[in-house]
């Protein structure tokens, strides 16, 4: 339950007008800080929903794949430059961002994580790494602005952010594939 409150506080903090304004004033903060943090707030709040609506999640997300697919759809949607532009100009889209990233991406992914196997986890990470690499390529090398609200240099910055994000995902994937991570999560020892 503690996690739920942490998630809720984070969610409300991100929704405060000055915080929203600051994070949305720089494209990299918008894409690489506000959006991931909204997603994280959903991850933190997820156990509450998973417990409260256990039957629903068991029926709808039994194999974990529907949750993963929903997560991917939401992430893909927010990768579209126009979506980010519209969130700055249309309040309904902004509201959708605050609903979709925590509740339609964060919550379902956490519910799915305990249901999917190691192989699906790796495939998902690989898919995200590929997606972010494509985004990095697109944002760094595209010669005209993709978002009307930001400058070309902001766009390149976001591209480099994607490149590092992708690098971290690949490194993590390598780590999980080539080392026994379970050795770090057994019960505590002295």
């Amino acid at each position: 339950m503690k996690q739920f409150w942490y998630g809720l506080v984070l969610f409300l903090f991100l929704a405060l007008p000055p915080v929203r304004h600051l994070l949305e004033s720089i494209m990299a903060f918008h894409m690489h800080m506000q959006m991931p943090l909204l997603f994280v707030s959903g991850l933190l709040m997820a156990p509450f929903f998973m417990k409260r609506f256990k039957n629903f999640f068991d029926q709808w997300n039994g194999s974990g794949l529907p949750g993963v697919i929903l997560f991917l759809v939401i992430v893909l949607y927010w990768m579209v430059p126009k979506a980010m532009d519209e969130s700055l100009e249309i309040m309904a889209v902004e509201a959708f961002k605050f609903i979709s990233l925590p509740f339609l991406a964060g919550v379902p992914l956490r519910d799915s994580w305990v249901r999917i196997g190691k192989a699906t986890e790796s495939v998902l990470l690989l898919a995200l790494a590929i997606l972010f690499s494509i985004m990095a390529y697109l944002y760094i090398l595209f010669e005209s602005t993709l978002c009307n609200n930001y400058l070309l240099v902001d766009q390149k910055t976001v591209g480099w952010g994607f490149a590092f994000f992708s690098l971290c995902l690949i490194l993590y994937l390598v780590l999980t594939l080539f080392t026994d991570q379970s050795q770090y999560y057994d019960e505590a020892s002295t």
């Binding site: 971290c168 490194l171 770090y184 505590a188």
Partner: peptide, 19 residues
């Protein structure tokens, strides 16, 4: 208290540091 094993996961800490 026993020291948790996750502290030893240097591979992960390096990735978090890069991030």
């Amino acid at each position: 208290h026993p020291t948790p094993k996750w502290t030893e996961n240097w591979g992960l800490w390096v990735i978090v540091a890069i991030l």
